[in-house]
Design a protein around this nucleic acid. Structure first.
Lengths: 226, 226
DNA sequence: TCGACAGTTAAGTACAAAGTGAAGTGTTAG
DNA sequence: CTAACACTTCACTTTGTACTTAACTGTCGA
């Protein structure tokens, strides 16, 4: 067990592989070449590293024609990486007053495919407080009022519920250390917010920015002052 | 940010350092030498690694005399390590939350010149409960009843009080993580117990053993069942 | 069919960093 | 006081493994 942990740690601990994991946090699957480019290394090298990660069950690979798509094997992998990322700030923040203000990535970021960070947690709190979602023994569920609310918000739940993946579940946010919603409902929520231009994805990063319009709308819908 | 993550990852990723982190999960603080033994490496090497971990704000160190106690800088560190452990292949992932009977060094040991470990904390608790010593805002003090008690026990306080070093003060015990008495009174107490052969020092170690006589006497004087 | 592309495999090299031995500081114990 | 101990620092050696060069398999599109 201890040795297995060492193996995992050394595996993630290599700079190149760490960057791979960082990149994959975006949630989508990457091809080997895409990863080689974003990590800035050779195809042979990335191939070697990916093989190791797959063998260790940290990644899974799916072949499509001449491409191979790599992604996290389980969501726990993403959580672990996030937990490690959450260790970063204190080493930096000691410097300037300016940097004490919440960094974008902590402020609002996509956790795999749902919304995390300060905003994600606040949204979840709001949904809970309005009793649109309810905490039960196993996790979260949507209340009858919630169903109506989401429908009027433009997210009909009937479709989502039929999907394989879990509909709505709590996910611990590592920067806030409080749960936020995950699952297909959370994804739909994020999609909607992107589509309505409430938030925008920042290219080459996992951070999101909340637009002026978004701030206003979020205020009215969720009663959150950003 | 990405580079900082890489640094953290590579830092934890070294086999020796990973084992250090694993060991520290136990929650208590370890000395450099203790870590060198459990990790099975040289003192120089462990010193080097610990320095790096402290510089990265993953660990904090507290000097007590010639010992240095290392522990996690924040609880988030432990969370991250646990998240990584949860990635260990599903085969044998039953975490050992441990059987281990209390080791001698944890059981009863000298913290330089006063008595620490389970017994030390228990003694302190007993003294507090009998109101022979009293907790005030700055630390501990001996009550009038306490003075009489110590005198009858063979420790006249008048002499001790004149010494330069602090007479009685609380000292955090790292294995129990609770305070025990320190200062000249504690030293006198230990001396007395050694002299009366209640406890014996183990050569080449900081551990103490309680003799059969000691168990009996401690039971009568402190109402502690060992 | 061919050439371009995506990815793999194999062998050899290079270098950062882990580990070691020796000598240092500071602390405690007798 | 001196000796033992806890830990650090420095200078050196060693070694693991990441990365490179090169040649390979398999897939796609014109």
């Amino acid at each position: 067990m201890e040795n297995q942990f060492k193996q995992i740690a050394t595996l993630i601990g290599d700079p190149t592989r760490a960057t791979i994991m960082w990149t994959l946090l975006e949630g989508k699957a990457f091809t080997a070449t895409e990863l080689a480019i974003t990590v800035t290394t050779s195809p042979q090298n990335i191939s070697m590293h990916l093989t190791k990660l797959v063998q260790a069950n940290l990644l899974v690979v799916e072949s499509q024609g001449r491409h191979k798509y790599y992604r996290f094997a389980r969501k726990e992998i993403a959580y672990a990486i996030e937990a490690m990322i959450s260790l970063v700030p204190p080493t930096v923040n000691t410097k300037k007053i300016e940097s004490q203000k919440v960094s974008p990535i902590k402020y609002c970021r996509t956790c795999y495919d749902h919304i995390a960070g300060k905003v994600g947690v606040a949204l979840t709190d709001s949904l809970l407080q309005q009793q649109l979602i309810i905490e039960n023994t196993t996790g979260f569920e949507v209340s009858p009022e919630g169903e109506k609310w989401f429908a009027s918000f433009g997210i009909p739940l009937s479709v989502l519920k039929q999907q394989k993946r879990s509909f709505v579940r709590p996910c611990l946010d590592w920067s806030e250390r409080r749960p936020h919603i995950a699952g297909s409902l959370a994804t739909a929520l994020l999609d909607k917010m992107v589509h309505e231009d409430w938030v925008r994805k920042i290219r080459g990063s996992r951070a999101l920015v909340v637009t002026a319009k978004g701030k206003k709308e979020i205020q009215t819908h969720f009663r959150i002052d950003l």
